[in-house]
């Protein structure tokens, strides 16, 4: 196996009495797409900041591209691309100027930044907006511009903190497509998300994080196989009746979760389970059979939903 580009061993980050990141360990191989999946406040962004060499860890070992971010921050950052949760683009500059100015921070010449900016505007599908103001751009366009900006230095590792939060479905899919292309080109991606579909789409491997701790690690398929069943039956009886019906049908599934608005029955044969529910005379108001997702893994591991 090739040398990992990120190695975290028992990393902790404490703010006063609050433990934001509690003893986490993971490794990321070159070219791998690695995700940190967890709800808001799980410690994902703090981990990202430590990897991005802008936040010092309280204890543990962290190694990025062979260097310690606590002592070699600027050198590490020279090889990273960072897409933060909030687009911190410069609204006083035009679209292309944002790329030109940012490229200079890496010591690139004026000629180099000009060439690279034009390539990346094409990649980000923003070439026709090169002279536009940043402020009126749509959320999706701003995100694509931020990704283009993060690629100016041709980074070894691209860090993406909640890359599609706040975007509409179409904008998300465009962005996923761009990220998928980067993945195909061999760029190492490290991303945080609380969207399970995003993690499934983009991550080769991921860790599920909650309250600063790693709950599970593996590929999306492995995690689903380990922590959930093949299928899930969702039935709704009305918010005041779900809890009442759940004990009457729970024996039909391997596991049951009662949420405020629905009951989830974990089973390997969803349609057959749904038929049995009807045979018993418990006809739901609405029903759905779907395959298990990382959302179910998270629910199993923490007893809570990812998006709260």
């Amino acid at each position: 196996m090739s040398t990992p580009v990120i190695v975290a061993n028992n990393v902790r980050k404490v703010f006063g009495d609050f433990v934001a990141v509690d003893d986490i360990s993971f490794e990321v191989a070159p070219g791998e797409s690695f995700g940190l999946l967890g709800p808001n406040g799980a410690g994902k962004s703090t981990t990202m900041k430590m990897v991005g060499a802008v936040s010092t860890r309280t204890s543990g070992e962290l190694n990025i591209l062979g260097l310690d971010p606590n002592t070699d921050g600027p050198a590490i950052r020279s090889r990273l691309g960072v897409v933060p949760q909030d687009d911190n683009l410069d609204n006083e500059l035009r679209v292309r100027e944002n790329l030109l100015a940012y490229g200079r921070f890496f010591g690139m010449s004026h000629k180099e930044v000009a060439t690279r900016a034009d390539e990346l505007l094409e990649f980000a599908q923003l070439a026709d907006r090169h002279d536009a103001r940043v402020e009126p751009l749509s959320g999706g366009m701003k995100r694509r511009l931020t990704i283009a900006r993060a690629l100016m230095n041709n980074p070894k590792i691209l860090l993406l903190d909640e890359p599609t939060t706040g975007l509409d479905p179409q904008a998300r899919h465009i962005l996923w497509d761009r990220l998928f292309r980067l993945k195909e080109q061999g760029t190492t991606l490290l991303l945080t998300t609380h969207y399970m579909d995003e993690a499934e789409q983009l991550c080769d491997r991921l860790i599920v994080v909650d309250k600063g701790r790693i709950m599970a690690e593996g590929s999306p398929a492995d995690l689903i196989r380990t922590y959930s069943t093949r299928e899930v039956v969702e039935v709704r009886y009305g918010s005041d009746k779900n809890a009442e019906v759940a004990p009457l049908i729970s024996h039909l599934a391997d596991r049951t979760e009662v949420l405020p608005d629905r009951i989830l029955l974990y089973t390997d044969a969803g349609e057959a389970t749904l038929a049995r529910i009807s045979e018993l005379g418990h006809h739901p108001v609405t029903s759905l059979v779907r395959r298990s997702s990382l959302e179910d893994v998270f629910l199993r591991l923490t007893g809570r939903s990812l998006v709260e």
Binding site: G52, P74, P84, N88, D90, Y102
Partner: peptide, 10 residues
């Protein structure tokens, strides 16, 4: 928040 963007570089 452009300073945070600057600081994400060297």
């Amino acid at each position: 928040k452009i300073f945070f963007g600057f600081h994400a570089t060297p």
